[in-house]
Design a binder for these strands. Structure first.
Lengths: 348, 348
DNA sequence: GACACCTCCTTAATCAATTAAGACCTTAAT
DNA sequence: ATTAAGGTCTTAATTGATTAAGGAGGTGTC
């Protein structure tokens, strides 16, 4: 029961290793009889087929794309946005017949990120905070890499949206409706796990570039509309869940004066805000306007949101990674769009 | 700019390849000075670190788990059950510091499933229909394998629930409430893409073992309660979405006599049934009882459902795959539980 | 008969590392 | 002075395949 390799079979049949290899990969290179004989013996010996790793080494291709998420794996799929993105990426992978190797980012910063040992042809990095060690490891591998959403790395393709513009669009929508008392709930600004009020200094120090930009959009739109940003209650969450949104909602809606509009950076969070509003007997949109982001879970709840082409973004990232010759280091900005539903209206 | 390997560095520094290897993997085997020198030259030459594939070949481990889903990748995550399972599996992988290689099952049966070339240490097979070619390919690799949900493969560990019992539990719940006109909407019985009414013969010929068993549970409970199964309207779906559920709902609720209770095999489908009921002005649970399955999207909608420990199932599958020595080929049956919420009540 | 041309198989280089065992030199203890 | 013990580096086997080039033998053509 020792390991069976091409050589084992070759010895048994009395041919060279090369011949056995041809029997598996190039039937036209040898006679039918011998081929049958070889396959028979291989079967008899319990040969598991040409070793994938050895093949990969010799052929110089891994047949897989590496994928790095900011969140620890178990939570990565809590957000429908991530799921949509993933579906797009998977579609591209499927077309090319390659696998998708999802790399776990260990939560305890101690253990090494298994990037060095990842058998892949390219990396897709999604939403990593500024200066995350895993990014350095990926860059060290010198394989094709594309970044999605953040952080922008000069010299590598980038796919995402215009975050400041998208944030401003969301904010302008409620401002133009006439709201002046705006509240904000955001997740994914920092990765230090903090939850609670965030002052402007902390907001600006966010380690996630995309969210920093989106927030900047909120601020600039408010400022342009004459709303004092320092007075805007800003609640920061460390987890993107409906429950977290509800918590933020309670905090924001207990503020005095109470906001008449709340901006959130995910639809899931916005749903939680709606829950909090319901808890407090507030009607949406009469008493409170709520804006989500991503259009991932928004339709059924009638949420006004910013739609971004998550699947397209994923698919594009995949195609860039799989393109030969390697993709040019373009910065691809996908369009976003305001979808107005029934969660926003003029105040009063 | 040719490829830089250990040898390139060795030649440049004037030492042997082994020494360079030690510089990277075992700092204690050489003097600090030389080590620094080597790392410096490596950096200078743009060395990308020890080649992952070569390392994997030499060390005999891939550092990854292969994952095969029944659905094509882009749709696999439409069901929250899949997401929950995946989170559990990912947690196990994360703990062990290994990656998760998701293998695309090509939709056009023509192209080969890239199982042969997957650089993995073990395979996790989830919900494959009977006789799916990918399973044969996986078995040929002779690596550790566990099956989740279906199909049961003797000689390999299996993780899942007692499907017939779970199905019967769901059915008994509405039967014991007094319902006699029961309807059924199920997805994932066959993989031929058909949607519409299914007679008992087609139901029993389902190619997915787990769903076959679950359906058997519905039937046996009905028969035990004196309900004629042949008279039970049974609508089959090919896609697990809220929209598909709504379609089934319209079909079922147009039946004469109209069912007073509908059993579904996913929560997503059940939500669609609720949509259909709302379309038709039927009140739930007064005019119609609905039962979901999985407790994946059920809570908010107040769905009565069967809860199964999706995360635990995923985690257990992962641990079995990663266990050394390889796990015994046990058949692990996880508990399920009826969660009664507000979507079911006695008829009339 | 000479030459070309197949068909079928072998030789040997190659992919890029890891690591046990051994060589060589220096230092310390007896 | 001798032996032992370390420290540092090298040798060479090993991991399991792929594939260009070449050789042996048979057949076909002029």
């Amino acid at each position: 029961m020792a390991k069976v390799t091409l050589q084992t079979i070759a010895d048994r049949v009395g041919v060279s290793r090369a011949t056995v290899s041809y029997a598996f990969s190039r039937p036209d290179q040898l006679s039918d009889g011998l081929r049958r004989r070889i396959l028979e013996v291989a079967d008899e010996l319990g040969y598991a087929g040409p070793n994938a790793t050895a093949r990969s080494l010799r052929l110089g291709r891994a047949g897989a794309l590496g994928l790095l998420f900011s969140e620890t794996l178990p939570y990565a799929f809590a957000d429908p946005y991530a799921v949509g993105f993933f579906q797009g990426l998977a579609a591209a992978a499927e077309d090319a017949g390659v696998g998708l190797l999802i790399l776990p980012l260990p939560r305890g910063e101690q253990r090494p990120v298994p990037v060095r040992d990842a058998v892949v042809d390219a990396f897709c990095v999604v939403s990593l905070p500024d200066g995350h060690p895993a990014l350095a490891e990926v860059l060290a591998r010198k394989l094709p890499m594309v970044v999605v959403d953040e952080p922008y790395v000069p010299g590598h393709p980038f796919v995402g949206i215009d975050e400041p513009a998208a944030g401003a669009l969301a904010a302008r929508h409620v401002l133009e409706l006439g709201h002046r008392r705006v509240g904000v709930a955001m997740v994914g600004l920092h990765d230090d796990g903090r939850t609670g009020w965030a002052d402007p200094a902390r907001q600006r120090a966010a380690t996630f570039e995309a969210m920093r930009g989106r927030r900047g959009g909120y601020e600039s739109a408010c400022v342009a509309a004459g709303v004092d940003w320092a007075g805007v209650p800003f609640y920061e969450l460390s987890r993107n869940s409906r429950e977290a949104g509800r918590e933020a909602g309670h905090a924001l809606l207990r503020a005095d004066p109470r906001p008449t509009a709340v901006l959130t950076n995910t639809d899931v969070l916005a749903l939680g805000i709606l829950d909090a509003a319901a808890d407090l007997g507030l009607r949406v949109p009469e008493d409170l306007s709520v804006v989500g982001f991503s259009d991932s879970a928004a339709q059924e709840a009638g949420l006004t949101t910013i739609r971004q082409a998550k699947q397209e973004i994923g698919e594009k990232a995949g195609r860039l990674l799989l393109s030969d010759p390697p993709a040019a280091p373009e910065r691809l900005i996908f369009p976003h769009e305001l979808i107005v539903r029934s969660s926003t209206a003029a105040p009063h």
